[in-house]
């Protein structure tokens, strides 16, 4: 029983995609998996179980116009960040720089100045967890637009108690940081692809993945930065109910 070595990080970074390569095993599917499974590295076996053994419903259509299989394929950032998280190691500087550079390449800034949108629309986007879910209950984007689900991970309006804590609190974001052009650009970049400043962050790449449009990003930015937005008001002492 020979176990393949773990894929070196370099190969991962080069984007060597196991699933794109023709499978060694697809043709002769073993009746007993013992020999086949134990000959693979854990990474190979995981991909084999997902893609070759069809451990997922790979053929379902997705909202963005592809198939479930496309959703499960990893890009470089996903692949590298997954491997590092699993290893438990800290992100080394060269890899961090690569991830950050990939993010920089991906970000499309709006032409001209970045103007804030409508904070009220931004609030809806920040609150909504709708969109892109598939499987037993499929989100229908023609009925309701997809949201950004920021509240799942962040505190924003200081009077909203049902907020997640996976990300830092963004309460008072604009009040504390101001609305200079540099701040606007910074915030746009974070929402578009936060790996630029936080390589291998768990924050979704809303712009890069195309889950928020440029206009929606500007609306969410208004929710974060507009002085009128609830995010930038002081806490009401009365709303302490938990």
């Amino acid at each position: 029983m020979t176990r393949n070595r773990k894929l070196p990080l370099l190969a991962l970074i080069a984007g060597a995609s196991l699933c794109a390569a023709p499978s060694l095993f697809a043709a002769e599917r073993p009746s007993s998996p013992v020999a086949a499974y134990t000959a693979m590295s854990p990474e190979e076996l995981a991909d084999y179980l997902i893609f070759e053994m069809e451990g997922f419903d790979l053929h379902a259509p997705t909202q963005e116009g592809g198939t479930a299989r496309d959703r499960l394929e990893q890009d470089r950032t996903q692949k590298v960040c997954s491997a590092i998280a699993r290893s438990g190691a800290a992100l080394d500087r060269p890899t961090a720089a690569k991830i950050s550079a990939l993010a920089e390449e991906s970000i499309q800034l709006p032409e001209g100045d970045i103007a804030l949108g409508d904070w009220k629309k931004g609030e809806q986007i920040a609150r909504s967890g709708y969109g892109y879910r598939m499987g037993h209950r499929v989100d229908d984007h023609t009925g309701e637009p997809p949201g950004g689900n920021c509240y799942a991970c962040h505190q924003l309006d200081p009077n909203e108690t049902a907020h997640g804590t996976v990300g830092p609190s963004l309460a008072g974001y604009g009040r504390l940081r101001g609305t200079s052009d540099a701040m606007l650009k910074h915030t746009y970049q974070i929402i578009y692809n936060a790996h630029l400043f936080f390589p291998c962050t768990t924050m979704p790449r809303f712009g890069h993945n195309g889950t928020l449009t440029q206009e929606q990003i500007r609306d969410v930015m208004a929710y974060l930065l507009d002085p009128e937005s609830p995010v930038n008001q002081e806490t009401e002492q009365t709303a302490q109910a938990d």
Binding site: Y37, P42, L45, L49, C81, A83, R86, Y132, P204, T211
Partner: peptide, 18 residues
């Protein structure tokens, strides 16, 4: 082997929300 593949799956980022 199954446990180790499961670990990879647990850490495996993918999809529109990474």
């Amino acid at each position: 082997a199954m446990r180790d593949a499961g670990e990879v799956m647990f850490y495996r980022r993918a999809g529109t929300s990474d």
